[in-house]
Structure formats: structure tokens, C-alpha cells
Design a protein around this nucleic acid. Structure first.
Lengths: 135, 135
DNA sequence: ATTGACCTTATAGTAGCTTTATAGTTTTAA
DNA sequence: TTAAAACTATAAAGCTACTATAAGGTCAAT
């Protein structure tokens, strides 16, 4: 299987595959005589694992960490679960921050109707005055 | 006022100030004979405006846009409000996406207690199987 | 023979800074 | 007075996770 087929199979771009290889996330495949990469089905599974981790918002470093656990399959999996717990709490704090931000933005927006000149715009005034008791 | 004092006043690093100047967000100040930048109070206000916009999650490009409106104070402020509306809807869609992600992560996490070997870890199995019916 | 689709590597660009390197200037302490 | 500490300057690289571009080699079909 060449790189284009693998890319289509998993739904990524070929450059992304080369990038993962370069980053040490995907093992380097064998090469044909002409230098073309030849992938196995196992590569497809590895790549799909990486993509699903990315969809879950894990960083490449975190994926690397998960892979290192997989290399040692008889260890207890507490570290895996801890990684996920950390990620969940990270996502939750992002949500909280964004919700606070939304509130702030909506209240700022409410300070202006559209029928003013820039000079008198409530939004710009709100930002400039800086009564942003955030955090 | 030199760059260090301005930085302390507004609560940013000196490099950030130089960066904003380079990006055209902060007007270049006068220089002393030795080349040191000399800032006015007005620079402090401009910089504070930029920082508050950043805290609100606006991109440098959006800040640039707001500044261009401020340069033309007798235009109607509809564009300012539209920019904020766009940003609010952007923030809202981020929140929605993160909430869906959190759900997915929590359910994945529930598939494993800590008392297993990596080989049998429910979390890793969940990612590998890829029954992630997302989006 | 040449077009088109595919593959290769290397390099630069994205956002918003932060870090590092190297060097000159000013202030302060001994 | 001098030497160190603290400040300033510029330029360039690093960060994340790719994406895009350039310049070229390979292969099948026409």
C-alpha cells in the first residue's frame, strides 16, 4: 500500500502521514526500489489510532505517551487513565473559561445598538474603559 | 516612559510590546539618542486596549480591524457590532464542540477502572476500536 | 513522446507570542 | 572608580500541528 492509498483509507493528507513519521508517531515503513513508501495494514491501524486521539483533542506529545504505554502492555493502566483524566479536566476548564468569556462578550454587545457612530460605540467604549472584572 | 515601565504598567513582557509594534498594532514611539523607545500615556491606553481585546479572545487581525474603525470615528459602528457578533458565535460554537468532546471523553473514561494492565485497558481499547460516532 | 497522476525531499507559512543569542547602555553597589 | 546588575537593542529560532509551495523523480497510458 502506497502513501496515497493509506491517506485515502484513513482520511488524511499524505503530508500529514510523512509529518507523523518525522515526528516519531508512525514507524517508518519499508521503501520500494524507487524510494516510495510501502505501508502495511498495521500502519493503517496505527495511523487511525493517532487520528482518533487527535479528534479527542490529545496533543502529539500525549499520543506519544500513550504509545509508550502500549509498548509495555503488562504495566498497570493507571497512567493511561490519569492522562485521560487530566485531559478531561483541561477540556472542562476550557469550557468554563469560554462560558465566562461568552457572558462578557454578550454584555459588551448589549451596550451598543447599531445606530451610532464609531466615536460613540458602546462596544468600543466598553473595551476602552476596561471595566472588565474578569477571572 | 521606557519599555520596561510600560510593560509593568500594562502587565505584559517587553518583547510583546515590540512584537505589537512590529505587527503594526502599536504605533512606533519616539527614540532617545541611544535608541531606547520612549512611550507616552497614550501608548499605555493603546496597549491596554490591545490586551483587553486579546483577553476577549479577539485575534490580532480583528484588533487591527477595530483600530481601523477607530481611525474613522464618524462612520456608523455597525461593523464593530458585526465583528463582535461574529466572535460571539465563534465562541459559542467552540463551547458546543468542547461539550460534545467532554461527553465523549467521559464515556471513554468510564470504560476502564484503574485495575487493569495496559493490554486490557478499556480506554485504549475504546480509542483503538474507533466506535467514535462523532460529528 | 508527452501528459497526468503519483511519489520524493526540503523549505516556508500559519498565530501569537516566547526564547535565545549577541551586544550596547545605564544604574547601582563596593 | 570600576565592576556587576539591570535594562535596552536587534535578529533569529522555537513552539503546535499541520498545510502549502517548490522542484524534481517515477510510472502508466495515450
Amino acid at each position: 500500500m502506497r502513501i496515497g492509498q493509506l491517506a485515502q483509507l484513513v482520511g488524511v493528507e499524505t503530508q500529514t502521514i510523512r509529518f507523523y513519521e518525522q515526528q516519531g508517531l508512525l514507524p517508518p515503513p519499508d521503501r520500494q526500489d524507487n524510494g516510495y513508501r510501502v505501508y502495511t495494514e498495521k500502519h493503517g491501524e496505527w495511523l487511525a489510532f493517532i487520528r482518533r486521539c487527535r479528534i479527542l483533542g490529545l496533543s502529539l506529545a500525549e499520543i506519544h505517551e500513550l504509545q509508550s504505554y502500549q509498548d509495555d502492555p503488562h504495566q498497570p493502566c493507571t497512567a493511561v487513565n490519569a492522562l485521560l483524566d487530566d485531559h478531561i479536566s483541561h477540556v472542562r476548564s476550557q469550557i468554563t473559561a469560554l462560558q465566562a468569556l461568552e457572558k462578557q462578550l454578550v454584555s459588551l454587545r448589549a451596550s451598543c445598538n447599531d445606530d451610532r457612530e464609531v466615536e460613540a460605540c458602546g462596544v468600543l467604549a466598553g473595551i476602552s474603559e476596561g471595566n472588565m472584572h474578569q477571572q
